Simulated scan of single mutants.
Amino acid sequence: MQIGIVIYDEAEVLDFAGPYEVFATAARLCGTKPWSVSLISERKTVRARGSFPVQSHFTLDNHPPLDVLLVSGGVHTWAMNNTVLLDSLRRAARSAQWITSVCTGAFILAQAGLLTHQNVTTHWEDIDELGTRFPDLSIKENVRWVEDGNRITSAGISAGIDMSLHLVEKLHSRDLALNTAKQMDYFWES
């Protein structure tokens, strides 16, 4: 199973690093390596928030088929207008069992046409804007994540860790999700 986390310039660091740590830790604890997790971006290196340089495993052009597509949040306005990124997300979504986002990654999924009429959430600060830009979405407030069919969106930043633990539970088991949270010394709001 392939889990791909899409990042871009000005992506929020914890939006991708938190889920990455969850999936990598869970795979290590599992012992049988139920999945591989990778970072994917348009260019091999991006500058995340705070000018944090990040080198991806794959580019949008050369990543393997994904079973889980996760789009991180951050300063999303540029990403929403990047046709290369949006087209790549649409292609990746064709094989994905799960299409997910953290924080303002929901804007990017919606712009790509991958969230339509779903129940969704995003960072509390961006709830109104998401509803204004995409009025067909049903926005949920004061929740850590929302699952609707094979779409899962999370609230802001640290909520991506909670959503990722939820995905570990769905992809493998509740025991693995609980053990992962314990190993990470993280209080999981499940």
Rank of each mutant, 00 (worst) to 15 (best):
Q2E: 13
D87C: 05
T83I: 06
P64C: 13
N150M: 08
F16T: 13
E10Y: 00
Q111A: 15
E125R: 15
V54D: 02
G160V: 05
G31I: 02
I40N: 07
E42V: 01
I152P: 03
S51I: 09
T45M: 12
R90M: 01
E12K: 07
A177K: 02
P34R: 15
A112T: 00
D162W: 02
T100W: 07
S154E: 00
D175T: 14
T59A: 03
G156W: 05
M1G: 10
G131V: 07
G149C: 05
M1I: 04
V13M: 09
G74I: 06
T121K: 05
V6Q: 04
G31W: 04
R94D: 09
S190A: 15
P65H: 15
Q97D: 10
S72W: 10
C103E: 04
W78D: 14
G149S: 10
M1W: 08
T104F: 03
Q97N: 14
H172D: 06
I108Y: 06
I99S: 00
A17F: 00
G131K: 09
A112D: 08
L60A: 11
G113D: 12
S101D: 13
V75P: 00
E129K: 14
F16R: 09
T121M: 01
L130D: 05
E129H: 07
P135S: 12
Q55R: 15
S138L: 12
R151H: 14
Q111I: 06
L176M: 08
H166F: 09
